[in-house]
Structure formats: C-alpha cells, structure tokens
C-alpha cells in the first residue's frame, strides 16, 4: 500500500508527481469509500476532491512505507465527520448516477434473469440495511467488513480506542443482522 515518492525533483514537481501517482493508484478506492460513507455521488466527489487537496498540501507528512490507504481513509473520515457537523450532509437529494460503471461499460453484472433475481434478492436488502445504520456504525462496518481493516487500523482511522471500535462493531453487526433479516423477509414476501 505504500506510494512511491520521488525526492530528487523540485518540490512542486515532486509534489504534483506524488499526487498524480496516489490518485492513479488509490483514487478509485478512495472514491468508493467516500461513496459508501455518504451514499451519494455528489458528496463522494467533493469528499474525494477535498481529501486529495489535503494530501497535496500535507504530502511531506506521509511516510513512505506506511499505508497510504489508512491515511487517505482517515482524511476522508475526518472530512466527512466535519461536513456532517457543519451542514448535516451537503446534498439531501441523490443526483443522477451518470457514472455508474455498469452503465459506462454497457453491460450489467447480472447477465441472465436468474442472476438478476439473485442479485436483487441479496444486494437490495444489504443496501437497505447499510442505509439503516447510523453514520458511525456504517463507517465501522465499511472499514471492518468491506475494506477488511484490522481493529487497530480502524481505531487509527476513526480516531478512537480499539475497545471503542470493538463495541461499536458489535452493536453495528447486531443492528445489521436485524435489518438484513427484516429486508430479506420483505423482499421475499
């Protein structure tokens, strides 16, 4: 996960090269992480943009050999938290999803009606269950179960103790289990 940094160039060139390199390597992961936190594209784009502006300005504080993803996730998490405190979410209405990868590639992931049915059976309840979690719970679940970070890494990213991560994840998983069961039942009935 370590990003390379060229230190033999002039500071501004090296800075720009560093940014280009990390955006190319981690831009998609960052954008998807932001998308899962915010739930909409417009906020995810703003969050990703703002996070990389921070990276650009503080590029010297990144230590080569350490995890860039942990750093950028921490920045995104902090910016998202600040944004929620300030405005309670910048956009309340979901914007058209013109950049859906499936739409861009021209093919859907589910090739047959059966696949489509199965996808709807599982993906929709999961999506709705995730939406039903609080922001804090969703953040922990995304980091623990989707990004597969360790409790230690999550604690660093979120800025709390490992014990807090543990108890928050337990509560989130309990809540998630209930919500998935509920949405599975409603989708099958």
């Amino acid at each position: 996960m370590a990003a390379s940094r060229r230190s033999d160039e002039a500071p501004s060139d090296a800075q720009t090269a560093f940014l280009e390199s990390v955006v190319e390597q981690y831009g998609k992961a960052t954008y998807n992480f932001a998308l899962r936190l915010t739930g909409n594209e417009a906020d995810a784009r703003d969050l990703t943009q703002d996070a990389y502006i921070r990276v650009y300005r503080a590029w010297r504080s990144f230590k080569p050999g350490t995890s860039f993803l942990s750093w950028i996730y921490r920045i995104v998490t902090n910016l998202h938290r600040d944004e929620l405190r300030r405005h309670k979410g910048r956009y309340l209405v979901e914007l058209p999803e013109e950049n859906d990868s499936r739409a861009l590639s021209g093919a859907t992931l589910s090739e047959t009606p059966i696949d489509d049915y199965v996808e709807r059976q599982f993906s929709e309840p999961i999506s709705r269950a995730l939406d039903g979690l609080s922001t804090e719970q969703r953040r922990i679940v995304v980091l623990a179960d989707i990004e597969e970070c360790s409790y230690q890494e999550i604690a660093k990213i979120v800025g709390c103790s490992v014990g807090t991560v543990r108890s928050r994840l337990h509560r989130a998983r309990t809540q998630l289990r209930k919500l998935i069961d509920r949405h599975m039942k409603t989708s099958t009935s």
Binding site: G27, K28, R45, N99, S101, F122, I126, S127, D145, I146
Partner: peptide, 14 residues
C-alpha cells in the same frame, strides 16, 4: 454479503 454487495456496487472514477 457485504463484500459481494460492495463489489457489485463499486464504481469507476467519473
């Protein structure tokens, strides 16, 4: 299920 859902809903950068 969470990871499968994440893969299915993953987006390319705009």
């Amino acid at each position: 299920l969470l990871r499968v859902h994440a893969r299915e809903t993953e987006r390319e950068l705009p």
